[in-house]
Amino acid sequence: MVFDVGVNLFSTQFDLDRQDVIDRAKAAGVEGMLLISSDIAESRQNQLECSRQTNFFCTAGVHPHYAASVTADDMQQLKSLFLHDCVVAVGECGLDFNRDFSPRQTQIKVFEQQLDLAKSIDKAVYLHERDAFPTQLALLKDHQIQHGIAHCFTGDKLQMQAYLDLGLYIGITGWLCDERRHDQLVQALGYLPLDRLLIETDAPYLLPRTLQQKPKNRRNEPMYLPEIARYIAQVTGESAEHIRKISWQNSCRVFNLPQDLIHVD
């Protein structure tokens, strides 16, 4: 059993075979899945899909790319989504100072609104960050955030330790499997306690380069999550079975899911 804590299921790349993607994932042992939301519309799509699937959960929130389009009514709609039990984290929220698709001050304002929401309803924050680490860390500290996920972590050991010191979990993706750019992440992984490890594909992005048979379309899918677990095991010296098991347990813990979702031999 393995839990993918990062799937962009309503990406247009999955429009033609979405249910087949789900079926292939389950056949590969991916029984738990967290669907990532980037705006209010996608949050609603994800919530509806989760109501149809076993062991599917989702985030609800606004990605920094879309911060400029947020209205007061959007924030009210966002709050209402958390009335559904399957909506377990606020996000994908954070800061992106690399592409700057929304003005930075607007990104900060919308991020702070979502941090306040997460605190008020006691939900994990699901964090995106690119080229904005010092500002994002300062805001997390200001808002006393102690419960959440550094999604698709690609930073160094100092950044990882800063997130760990706040009490956050670390999401590791197929970025780790890319020998062209994974050096600092491999080094940081040596400092990650296994009880803070989460694994995610970020599908359809970040196809693991270590796959022996890569799809011709280069599209990542949740069914490839076991390859990420295998590579983490290779780097850490743990067994792949242990990585799968403990990441499942961590996923259930961070999202406050019922204990009977935790599969223990």
Rank of each mutant, 00 (worst) to 15 (best):
Y191H: 14
K157H: 12
L206I: 12
Q161W: 03
D156F: 07
T210L: 13
K214G: 00
Q146M: 09
D178L: 08
K157P: 00
T201E: 05
H143C: 03
Q144T: 04
T173E: 02
R181H: 09
D142A: 15
G171Y: 12
T154C: 11
C177W: 06
P193T: 12
Q213I: 12
D202E: 03
Q144Y: 04
V186R: 14
L176F: 10
C177H: 06
L158C: 00
A150N: 07
L176R: 02
Y205N: 03
L176D: 05
A162Q: 15
Q184Y: 00
P208V: 09
L189G: 07
L194Q: 13
D131P: 00
K214N: 00
Q161C: 03
T154S: 13
D202G: 01
T135Y: 15
D142P: 00
L140A: 03
K214T: 04
K214H: 00
E179V: 11
P215L: 09
H151S: 06
L211C: 05
L176S: 07
Q212E: 13
D131L: 01
H147K: 14
Y191T: 14
M160F: 11
I172L: 07
L166H: 03
L192A: 07
Q159P: 01
T135C: 14
D131V: 01
P134W: 10
E200G: 09
H182R: 15
L185Y: 10
L137I: 12
D202C: 02
K157Q: 13
A188L: 10
D142Y: 00
M160P: 02
K216N: 10
C152S: 14
I172D: 03
C177G: 03
C177M: 07
P208R: 11
L189K: 06
H151F: 12
K157T: 12
L207E: 06
F133M: 08
Y163P: 01
A138N: 12
T154D: 06
A150F: 14
T154Q: 05
R180L: 03
M160A: 08
G190Y: 07
E200V: 03
I170Y: 09
Q213W: 00
M160Q: 13
R181T: 10
L198D: 08
L189S: 03
A188V: 05
L139C: 10
K157N: 06
L206M: 12
K141P: 02
P193Q: 10
L166N: 07
G148K: 02
I145M: 09
R180W: 01
D131H: 01
D156V: 02
R180S: 11
G148H: 09
T173K: 01
T135P: 03
